[in-house]
Computed example of a mutant assay.
Amino acid sequence: MIIRRIMQLYFLLLYLWAGYQFFSLVESTLAGDIADFSLRFPVIETFLPLSALVGLKQLISTGVFDQIHPAGLSILLIAFFSALVFRRGICSHICPIGTLSEILNYGRNQLLRFKIPFPRIVHYLLMLPKYILLLFFIQVILMQMSGADAASFIYSSYNIISDAKMLAFFLNPSPLMIKVIGSLVVMTILIPFFWCRYLCPYGALLNIAAIFSPLQIRRQPNLCDSCGICDKQCPTNIQISKSTGIISPECTCCQRCISACPTKAITFHNRLTAKALKPVHYSIALLLLFVIGIISAQVSGHWNSLVLPLFWAKYLPQISVIPHP
């Protein structure tokens, strides 16, 4: 667990620092200074998932990699591949939203001891929105949009400054947005990991990939004393104590059940080699996959955009009047 905590803290601080640096870039550029793109960390493109999906459509249709936000597409591909191998470990180790949700849940547990129980059928129904959102985006972007339309969007003024648009969206939220965010915070306090479990379409996409992962959480019945502690620890409400192998794609491999089990009956299990995997080795392997993926993207020219600086400063002063295409 300690490696997972370190990873969570590192990536949370990385995203906060990247956000601050990008804010400085936007402010100085709008003030008339020359845009210093060394302040723009490509990891901020993590928050442009729709742009990355359009970039994927262009790549599939034309074979051309996104030249405007290449890091966004690279991160999408790395995340999807990581889910094929390591299930949804990205959610419990790297995603800043997952980390913030976990911090919020920890504070909630210190102040409130009650939990809101609801039938499992309700739980399954609540999961539908994220899959509906994912299917909508797949239908509109990957299926209906042509390669030419995808390229047109990628080079549009809106997409070029979509990172700045996203920053403005959070820095100057509308009254409706404040209500939505406030409602999500309240729901996360009442129902742990509400966004991650029921609304995140990115998580839904990773769920599909996780189905094919050779890794799973496995309970050894001969060691289990049926105390039910693992069920209480699971943030996604999986009934671990009633299963031998956890095949649910909702499992984020957070290792809570493994650490909490008093009889050590729960382990990571590799179905291909039929061997157990230590949690620390899992976390390190997941980290290495992301490091290798990012380095590969940098070396291959699919991380920093050579084109974006030519247009970004030009369109940024028009940010308030550039509409969504």
Rank of each mutant, 00 (worst) to 15 (best):
W303C: 04
V291D: 03
L125Y: 09
V26K: 07
L306G: 07
Q255L: 10
P42R: 13
I246E: 01
D163L: 04
C224V: 06
A265S: 12
T188Q: 13
H302N: 13
A210C: 06
T267S: 12
A148W: 14
V140R: 14
Y15P: 00
C234K: 08
P175E: 09
D225L: 10
E250G: 08
L206W: 07
S74C: 09
A71W: 02
I229F: 13
A83L: 08
S152N: 07
R87K: 15
P235H: 09
L184Q: 12
I34K: 10
D149T: 06
S101T: 10
Q110M: 04
S248P: 11
S92C: 01
A297D: 11
R5P: 04
F136V: 11
L184D: 09
C234G: 04
Y198K: 06
L277Y: 09
I75E: 03
S183W: 13
I6L: 14
S162E: 03
L25M: 15
K232Y: 04
I211H: 14
M7S: 14
C230G: 06
I94S: 04
L112E: 07
G182Q: 08
I191Y: 10
I6M: 05
I247L: 09
M1R: 12
L16T: 07
L308M: 03
V140P: 05
A260W: 15
I178W: 12
G203S: 08
I181E: 05
S213N: 10
I319H: 02
I247N: 11
T62G: 07
H123K: 01
K275D: 00
T46N: 05
Q239S: 07
L215C: 05
F169N: 03
M7R: 06
Q58N: 10
I68V: 15
F114P: 00
L199A: 02
L84P: 10
A83C: 09
I178R: 09
S61G: 03
K179P: 00
I68Y: 12
N159H: 04
L316I: 08
C230W: 15
F137R: 08
P119N: 01
R88K: 10
C95R: 07
S74I: 12
L77D: 00
V122M: 03
Q21F: 05
P235D: 01
L142A: 07
I97Q: 01
I132A: 11
M7C: 11
A168K: 08
F136G: 06
V85K: 14
A209N: 03
I322L: 05
L134W: 03
L288E: 14
F23K: 09
F65V: 03
Q139I: 09
L128Y: 01
T244K: 13
W195Y: 14
A297C: 13
F47M: 13
I138L: 15
R197Y: 07
L111V: 08
M187A: 11
L48C: 01
C261F: 13
C253P: 00
